[in-house]
C-alpha cells in the first residue's frame, strides 16, 4: 500500500513515498502501523508521537488528507497523505508543539473551589466532558484558535506577523480549553464565584468567535457544540455582541 508521508526538518517539508508491506494477508493497517513500519525500515529517525495504540492517550493525532485523525485507530488507505496537524507549529516530521494549548489554561482553573463534603455526585454531563482525551483534533477549522495565527494556520503566517511563543500559552482559546472551563462550571464542587470566573476566562479566550460559528468537531464524539459552546454562549448571554442566549 503506497502512502505519502510529509516530513519536516529545519522548516523544510519533504514528501516521502512509502510502500507499506502488509504483515499478514489482507491486513488493514492503521496509520500508526504504517508509521511504525516506516521507522523500522526505511526512515529510522522518522519523528511522530504515539503512546497507547488504543485511542486513549490522545497524542498520535496527525492529518490524513488534511483532516485530523487519531493515527492508532484510523485505517490507512492507498494514496493517503500523512502530515503533521496543520493547526499547531511543527517541531520535526509529524511532531507538532502542543504545549501552547495547556499553558493558556494556567491560572484559569481555580474556579473549582472546594466544599467540605467530597461525596457529591457529578452530573452525567460532567462525565461526558471528561471523555476528552486531549487529542486536539477539534482545533481544525476553529476561528478562535486561528486568531493566534492571524486568522490562518501557523505554517502560513502573513508577512509582518510573528508566530506566538507557545511557551507563553496561546492568547486565544479553542474547543478544548472551553471544554475544560465548562467542566469546571458543571462540577458540583465549584462555587458560584468559580462558575463566573470560568465564564470570564472563556470570554477572555475569545468566546465571541463562537457566535454564529458552525461549530466544532470532536475526535472522540463529544458534543462540543451542544454541551460546551452552546452552554457557554447561553451563560454569556447579553455579554456577547450578537449573543443568542
Amino acid at each position: 500500500m503506497k502512502v505519502e508521508i510529509v516530513t519536516h526538518r529545519d522548516g523544510e517539508a519533504t514528501v516521502v513515498d512509502y510502500d507499506y508491506q502488509p504483515r499478514v494477508e489482507g491486513e488493514r493497517p492503521m496509520v500508526l502501523d504504517v508509521l511504525l513500519q516506516a521507522q523500522a525500515t526505511e526512515m529510522p529517525d522518522l519523528a511522530f508521537r504515539y503512546g497507547c495504540r488504543a485511542r486513549n492517550c490522545g497524542v498520535c493525532t496527525v492529518d490524513i488528507n488534511d483532516k485530523p485523525r487519531i493515527a492508532c485507530r484510523a485505517r490507512a488507505r492507498e494514496g493517503d497523505r500523512i502530515s503533521p496537524v496543520a493547526t499547531l507549529p511543527v517541531l520535526s516530521d509529524l511532531v507538532v508543539r502542543r504545549d501552547g494549548i495547556a499553558r493558556q489554561m494556567r491560572g484559569r482553573l481555580s474556579g473549582g473551589a472546594q466544599g467540605n463534603d467530597l461525596n457529591v455526585e457529578a452530573p452525567e454531563a460532567y462525565h461526558d466532558l471528561t471523555a476528552c482525551i486531549e487529542c486536539y483534533a477539534c482545533l481544525d477549522n476553529c476561528p478562535m484558535h486561528a486568531r493566534n495565527f492571524a486568522g490562518g494556520l501557523p505554517a502560513d503566517m502573513p508577512e509582518g506577523h510573528e508566530l506566538p511563543d507557545p511557551g507563553e500559552g496561546y492568547r486565544w482559546g479553542n474547543p478544548f480549553s472551553l471544554l475544560k472551563l465548562q467542566r469546571i462550571r458543571i462540577d458540583p464542587m465549584t462555587t458560584d464565584a468559580g462558575r463566573e470566573a470560568a465564564l470570564d476566562h472563556a470570554m477572555d479566550l475569545g468566546l465571541d468567535a463562537c457566535v454564529g460559528c458552525p461549530g466544532c468537531k470532536c475526535g472522540v464524539g463529544i458534543d462540543l457544540k451542544g454541551q460546551v459552546v452552546g452552554e457557554l454562549l447561553a451563560a454569556a448571554g447579553d455579554r456577547l455582541p450578537d449573543g443568542d442566549g
Binding site: 503512546g51 497507547c52 488504543a54 486513549n56 492517550c57 490522545g58 497524542v59 502542543r98 504545549d99 495547556a102 482525551i133 486531549e134
Partner: peptide, 9 residues
C-alpha cells in the same frame, strides 16, 4: 504531554 501516561490509559 502533561498527564499523558499509563495512569491516563
Amino acid at each position: 504531554p502533561i498527564g499523558c501516561s499509563d495512569t491516563k490509559i
